[in-house]
């Protein structure tokens, strides 16, 4: 009896508490999780509107309805008629995946606009890259060199590096996958 009380009981209680906590968490996860893959959320629509002035875009999917991913690009959002598209990109800035942007490309493969969906960088420092005037400097860039020639923001070197990497990814993805994106 003493053995049971001293050795078995504690382990049993601990196991019980662990499994209870985990069960409750699984339940809470099922309740709160929303699968947004392949859905045009309000944030994405607002981003499209900001870059092109319309939200008449669709997420590029294959025949089975799965979102087509390119290297470094989470989703491509396309308007096949106007030949415009936007790339949703996560890039590391100072913090992991701190830069979550939409990069819009016009019909000639040049950057038409960049807009942040969320910016998880250090407030006051890294968040300086989330500035309309700064992001406007990238408009018209259509190759890596052009993106690279834009200056970094003082005091936000990691975040500037991140946003430039994101735009470079967008430019390269466009030039390499143009046919696939517009189904030509």
């Amino acid at each position: 009896m003493k053995f049971f009380k001293e050795k078995i009981m504690p382990s049993l209680v601990l196991c019980l508490i662990c499994s209870l906590v985990c069960l409750l968490l699984v339940g809470a996860y099922e309740l709160t999780y929303v699968d947004n893959t392949g859905v045009m959320t309000d944030e994405l629509k607002a981003g499209c509107k900001e870059v092109f002035g319309s939200d008449d875009f669709e997420i590029l999917k294959d025949a089975e309805g799965n979102v087509i991913e390119f290297d470094g690009v989470t989703a491509a959002i396309v308007n096949k008629e106007t030949k415009q598209c936007l790339f949703e990109i996560y890039e590391n800035g100072y913090s992991k995946d701190g830069i979550h942007v939409l990069v819009g490309m016009d019909e000639n493969g040049a950057v038409a606009g960049v807009t942040f969906i969320t910016c998880g960088e250090t407030p006051g420092l890294g968040t300086k890259v989330n500035d309309k005037d700064y992001l406007a400097k990238f408009i018209g860039a259509n190759n890596e060199a052009a993106v690279d020639s834009v200056d970094k923001v003082t005091g936000a070197s990691y975040s500037s590096k991140g946003i430039k990497a994101a735009i470079t990814t967008a430019v390269n993805t466009y030039s390499e996958n143009r046919e696939a994106i517009f189904g030509e």
Partner: peptide
């Protein structure tokens, strides 16, 4: 979500 990624 914004605060979630800032607090990290």
């Amino acid at each position: 979500p914004e605060m979630y990624s800032e607090l990290g």
